[in-house]
Simulated assay, not measured.
Amino acid sequence: MFMIRAIIRPEKVTNVLSELSDANFPAVTKMDVVGRGKQRGVKVGDVHYDEIQKEMLMLVVNDEDKDDVVKIIMKNAKTGEKGAFGDGKIFITEVEEAYTISSNTKAL
């Protein structure tokens, strides 16, 4: 199993979630997050915005589904703007075990 964490632009979340659901990946955790990338924020005029609003999507998938989920997120989270920064990042980590609390059983 793999945990996929995708930090994406807020305006892309609805489309990403819709496409994941259509591909039979409906179980997602969504959180509002703030942060900055290597560009160190954004400067607009004299104002520097150090923390940029993003959304983090988290989901756990079987090994054979990892690449499909990453492709869906990449395709639907990208702005397509040439030279644009801030489209986000995807982090993938292995999950050794997962449990369903209500049934006290191993998940997946």
Rank of each mutant, 00 (worst) to 15 (best):
G80L: 08
L59S: 04
N104F: 09
Q53G: 06
I90G: 03
K38T: 15
M56L: 07
L59V: 04
Q53D: 14
E97M: 09
F25C: 06
D87F: 02
F25T: 08
A6M: 01
N104G: 10
E19Y: 03
L59N: 14
N15A: 06
Y49M: 08
D65F: 02
E51S: 13
M3I: 04
A27S: 05
Q39G: 10
V42I: 15
Y49C: 09
S102N: 14
K66I: 03
M31T: 04
E81C: 00
M56Y: 09
I72E: 08
K106H: 06
H48P: 01
R40Y: 11
I7L: 04
K30T: 11
K71N: 09
M58S: 14
L20E: 03
R36S: 15
V60M: 07
M3T: 09
L59P: 01
Y99I: 04
I92W: 00
K38V: 08
I101P: 14
K82I: 11
D22C: 02
V13A: 06
S102C: 13
D46K: 15
L59T: 06
K66C: 03
H48S: 10
D67P: 12
F25Y: 10
K71S: 13
K75I: 12
M74Y: 08
D63S: 10
A107Q: 14
M74W: 00
H48E: 12
K75M: 09
M58E: 02
N24C: 12
S18I: 06
M31L: 06
M31W: 05
D68Q: 14
N15I: 01
G83E: 13
D67K: 11
F25H: 13
I101S: 09
V95T: 04
G41D: 01
E97R: 13
G86P: 05
N24L: 02
E94D: 10
D32P: 00
G88V: 05
V44F: 06
E94R: 01
K82G: 15
K89C: 07
V61Q: 02
D65A: 04
E97F: 05
A6Y: 13
S21A: 12
F85H: 15
T79I: 14
P26Y: 07
Y49W: 12
T105E: 14
E81T: 12
K106E: 08
F2H: 05
N24G: 08
T93D: 00
M56A: 10
Y99F: 07
K75P: 05
E97I: 03
T100N: 15
I92P: 06
G86F: 13
G45V: 14
A98H: 07
V44I: 09
P26E: 10
G88N: 03
V69R: 08
N76I: 09
D65T: 02
K78P: 00
K30S: 01
A77W: 06
K38R: 15
D50C: 07
V69I: 09
F91A: 01
I7V: 14
K43G: 02
N62M: 00
K12E: 04
M1L: 08
N76L: 06
V16H: 10
I73F: 05
G37W: 10
R5K: 14
V69M: 08
V61K: 00
K30L: 08
I4G: 00
G45S: 04
E94A: 10
I101Y: 11
G80F: 07
N24H: 11
I8G: 02
T93M: 01
K82R: 14
V34A: 13
M1I: 03
P10M: 03
A77R: 06
A6K: 03
N24W: 02
L57N: 02
